[in-house]
Design a protein around this nucleic acid. Structure first.
Lengths: 215, 215
DNA sequence: GGTTTAACTGATTAAGTAGTCAGAAAACAT
DNA sequence: ATGTTTTCTGACTACTTAATCAGTTAAACC
C-alpha cells in the first residue's frame, strides 16, 4: 500500500511507478483528466491495468501524483526571479529557463494548461495559495524596479502573464509551431534564436535596465 | 444570447441547433473532444440526447460544426493585418481585436488550445494549408517592415507566436488570472489597461515604428 | 526448506458512453 | 377533418470505462 516511491534504486516498484507516471503524464497532457483512460496509460507503460490501481489506488490519485511531480520541476525555474536584483539578468534567466522546460518537458505545461482551462478542479488550492503568494512577491519586485526607473510603468501582472504565455506556448502549441516550421522539429539553432528573440522582445518591451551605478 | 444564428428566424430548429452549439462549445472547451459527453451537452442545452444526434448526426460532426463557427470569428481579427501598412497601427489593431475575442468568446480559444495540445487530429488540414499560407504572407509583411527599419530584426514567427500566446492566454488561462485578481472578474478598466499594456510592450519589444515620411 | 508477507493480475462488476430506431407528436396540406 | 410529411424522443443496444477482488506468484525472512 505504500506509495510515493520516487525513490532510490532499481527496484521493480520504482521502475514500474516511474513507467506509469511517465505514461500518465503523456496521456493526461494529451487528453486531460476526463479524456485519459487507465487502459491507455497501461498500454503506454506496458503493464496490466490492474497494476496501475495497485500502485496508485485510483485515476484521481495517479493524476495528483503526476501534477506534484510537475510542480517540483517548475519551482526550480521560479527561483530565478528570487535572488537577482537586476531586471535584465533576472528576466532573461527566468525566460530562458522556462523555455528550456517547455522544450524538455512539454507534457507538464500541457497538463497545467488543461487544468486551468477546466477551472483548476484539482489545483485550485495551490493556485490560490502558493501561486498567489509567489506572484504577489514577484510583482512587488517589479514595482520596486519600476520605482527605480529600471522597468517601464506597466501592470506587473501583465509582464508575468506575457512571459508565462509565451514560454508555455512553445510547449502547449508545439504541434502548431512544427506545422508552421514546414513540419520539421525545431533544431538547436532555432531554439537558441527563440530564446534570444523572446528575451530581446520582452526586455525591450518592458524597458528593463540594469542598475546604472553598477555599470 | 443567440449569436451566429446561421439560420433565419426563430424557428424551433434554429433555436435548438444554436442552443446545442452553444452548449457544445462550452463542453468541448472545458473537456476537449474525448472528455466531452453528449449527455452533458444535452443537459447544458436542456434537450434530450437523441435530439443532438438528430440535428448533428454524430459527436464528431457536432465538434466540426463547432470549430467552423469559431474560425469564422477569428478570420475577422486576422484581417487587421491585411490592409494596413503601418506596423504600429496594424499590430495594435490586431492585438486589440484578439484580446476582445478572448474576452467575449473564450471558449473558442480553449477549443483551439485543446485541439493543438492533442496534435490537431481534426484541424490538421486547416493548419497545414490555410494557417500556413496566412502566416507565410504575414511574416513576409514583417520582413518588409524590417527591411524598411520599421521593425526590429527578430524572427517574424516569434512575433506572431508572442501575440497569439499572450492574447489567447487571457481566454485559456482566465481562471488563473481571476484567482490572481483576488478571485474577482476583470472589470472594464482592467481590460482596457491590459490592451494598452500588451500593445505597449509588444510594440516597444519589436521596435515598431510608423513610416517617418508619413509623419 | 518452510512459512509469512508483499507484489501482482485475470476475470468480473457496475456505471458510463455514443449511437440507433420505432413510433409518438407536431406541422402542414388538402 | 383527414391524410401526409417532418420533427422529435424514450427505450434500447453494443461498447468502453474505472474499480474491485479472489487467487496466484514471487520475494523476504527465519
Amino acid at each position: 500500500m505504500n506509495r510515493n516511491s520516487i525513490l532510490r534504486p532499481d527496484t521493480v516498484r520504482s521502475r514500474n511507478t516511474t513507467a506509469i507516471l511517465d505514461a500518465a503524464e503523456l496521456e493526461f497532457a494529451e487528453y486531460g483528466f476526463k479524456g485519459a483512460t487507465i487502459a491507455s496509460i497501461a498500454k503506454r507503460s506496458k503493464l496490466p491495468p490492474a497494476n496501475i490501481h495497485y500502485y496508485f489506488g485510483s485515476k484521481e490519485l495517479l493524476y495528483q501524483t503526476c501534477v506534484e511531480r510537475i510542480f517540483d520541476i517548475w519551482k526550480v525555474a521560479a527561483e530565478a526571479l528570487d535572488e537577482i536584483d537586476d531586471p535584465v539578468v533576472a528576466l532573461s534567466l527566468y525566460i530562458t529557463r522556462k523555455l528550456d522546460i517547455s522544450r524538455e518537458r512539454p507534457s507538464g505545461s500541457k497538463i497545467w494548461a488543461n487544468e486551468i482551462i477546466q477551472g483548476a478542479p484539482t489545483m485550485h488550492a495551490f493556485l490560490a495559495k502558493d501561486l498567489y503568494d509567489w506572484t504577489d512577491s514577484r510583482t512587488a519586485l517589479f514595482r520596486k524596479w519600476q520605482s527605480e526607473g529600471r522597468l517601464k510603468p506597466v501592470n506587473p501582472n501583465t509582464i508575468l502573464y506575457m512571459i508565462w504565455a509565451t514560454t508555455q506556448h512553445y510547449a502547449d502549441f508545439y504541434h502548431q509551431i512544427r506545422v508552421l516550421n514546414d513540419g520539421k522539429e525545431l533544431d538547436e539553432a532555432q531554439w537558441e534564436e527563440i530564446k534570444s528573440d523572446v528575451c530581446s522582445i520582452i526586455l525591450a518591451g518592458v524597458g528593463a535596465k540594469s542598475d546604472f551605478s553598477a555599470k
